[in-house]
Amino acid sequence: MAQYVEREGGGLPGRQHVEHLPGAVHRTGVWLANQRQRRDRLDAGQLRALAELGIDWAGSAV
């Protein structure tokens, strides 16, 4: 997610977005959608990290 935000300058990837990392492929869009669905089970540190990346719903949940 951080790679996407740094490259794109913000915003959120769509659900189908895939990041190609060195030695791996990460389904960033699906991962982010899953985090949002499970946000009530994320701890404060995880929500803060997401909020620092500019994810609106994470900042309001902290």
Rank of each mutant, 00 (worst) to 15 (best):
G14T: 10
R15P: 11
G45D: 15
T28P: 02
R7Y: 09
E19I: 11
T28K: 01
A49K: 01
G59D: 03
M1L: 12
G11L: 07
A33Q: 12
A51P: 00
L12Q: 13
V18F: 13
A44L: 13
A2R: 13
Q35T: 01
Q16V: 05
A33E: 06
L12H: 02
R39K: 15
Q35A: 06
A33Y: 01
G9V: 11
D40G: 05
I55Y: 05
L53Q: 09
L42K: 00
D43C: 11
G29N: 07
H20L: 13
R15L: 08
L12W: 02
W57L: 06
H26Y: 12
V5E: 03
A61G: 01
A49L: 09
G10H: 06
R48C: 02
P13V: 09
T28I: 11
R36A: 04
G14P: 09
G10Y: 06
R41S: 12
G9R: 11
L32D: 02
V62S: 07
G29S: 08
G54C: 08
V5Y: 01
V25Q: 14
L32E: 02
P13S: 10
A61P: 00
E19L: 15
T28V: 15
V25D: 10
R36Y: 13
L42E: 02
N34Q: 14
L53G: 00
E19R: 09
G45F: 07
G14V: 08
E19G: 06
N34G: 07
N34T: 11
H20G: 05
V30P: 00
R39L: 06
H26K: 14
H20W: 11
R39I: 05
H20K: 14
A44W: 04
M1S: 12
L42H: 01
R41Q: 15
A2I: 07
R38Q: 14
G54T: 06
Q3Y: 14
R39A: 03
G23A: 09
V18Q: 13
R41M: 06
G29Q: 03
Q3R: 14
I55M: 06
Q3N: 14
V62T: 13
V30E: 06
L53R: 03
R39E: 05
Q3V: 14
D40M: 07
H17S: 09
E8L: 04
L32V: 10
L53K: 02
A33T: 05
V62P: 04
N34P: 00
R48G: 00
L47Y: 03
D43I: 04
Q46S: 13
D40T: 14
A58K: 01
V30F: 02
E6Q: 14
Y4D: 04
G14S: 13
H26Q: 12
R48L: 07
G11S: 11
A44M: 08
G54S: 09
A51S: 14
P13G: 07
Q37L: 13
L50R: 00
M1I: 12
D56N: 12
L53H: 03
A58C: 07
E19P: 04
Q16A: 15
D40W: 04
L42C: 03
A58T: 01
G10W: 06
G10C: 08
D43F: 06
G11W: 07
G10S: 13
